[in-house]
């Protein structure tokens, strides 16, 4: 039985303006406290209570910078919560930032292996999947080339083929993946739908409200890092659209724009 549970979860992180503190800043800051610029505290998430049970398809919606992707990373275990707790039962597979992190000097085959091992595969498991991944990516002989010669589209194809070659228990997806050219996109969408159907739990961040309405049965509306509304998909999306509509009438093209900068 897969399940995900968050209790009163909060996440605060510290960003500095130039991101890295130098040794000088550190020493000077220690001696003359208050002289150096204060690090910026970003309250990315607070007081999130959430329980997702087997069979549920949860969509996360909200304006830019509301904390959707951050929440997904907390669910994946990449960010540790500052307070509250996170309990996950089941194996997590995440589909975000997939085009990042190729080993540039290694060729396609080798990168398939790294990714599979990272996802927890064994050598025997990788061997079984290698051909299927290669075929799905349609990269053919390019797989023998170092990844640094790949075009952006080829990278996405390869990343997508690897990332979706798993049987997920809990699937986390960020946005709709725009993978490669038109022909590949059709294939990719089909593969995504298959995966979403197979997963015991699926949680996706979406800007495409109609897609979320079709796929999800539960929707979580995030605003400024807190839960604004959580409930059946249709109901929450209607409320969100209504709210966004009134925001547009007031002339705010990007509701909550200040938060975007704070959390970016």
């Amino acid at each position: 039985m897969a399940s995900v549970e968050l209790n009163n979860l909060g996440l605060t992180f510290t960003v500095r303006h130039d991101k890295h503190i130098t040794l000088k800043d550190f020493l000077v800051g220690r001696i003359f406290r208050g002289f150096t610029k204060k690090p910026m505290q970003v309250r990315a998430l607070s007081g999130i209570d959430l329980r997702v049970n087997e069979g549920e398809r949860l969509g996360i919606i909200g304006h830019n910078g509301a904390g959707k992707s951050t929440l997904l990373k907390v669910l994946a275990g990449i960010y540790q919560p500052s307070e509250g707790s996170r309990q996950v039962r089941g194996r997590i597979s995440s589909l975000f930032d997939i085009a990042l992190g190729f080993e540039q000097e290694a060729n396609g085959w080798e990168n398939i292996r790294f990714r599979c091992y990272l996802q927890g595969e064994t050598p025997a498991g990788v061997k079984a999947k290698l051909r299927e991944i290669a075929e799905f990516s349609e990269l053919g002989d390019f797989l023998n080339m170092p990844v640094r010669y790949y075009s952006a589209g080829m990278r996405v194809r390869l990343a997508f083929s690897i990332a979706t070659a798993i049987d997920p228990e809990i699937l986390l997806v960020d946005e709709v993946l725009s993978a490669g050219d038109l022909a590949f996109q059709g294939k990719a969408h089909r593969r995504m739908r298959e995966m979403m159907a197979k997963a015991q739990i699926m949680i996706m961040v979406s800007h495409d409200l109609e897609a979320a309405r079709g796929v999800c049965n539960q929707v979580l509306w995030l605003e400024h890092g807190t839960v604004r509304m959580l409930g059946p998909a249709g109901q929450v999306i209607d409320a969100y659209q209504e709210w966004a509509g009134t925001a547009q009438q007031r002339g705010e093209s990007n509701p909550g724009g200040q938060v975007v900068q704070a959390a970016a």
Partner: peptide, 10 residues
Amino acid sequence: SEAYIMQHPS
């Protein structure tokens, strides 16, 4: 190893 750290909790 930043890219791996960002993707997977190892």
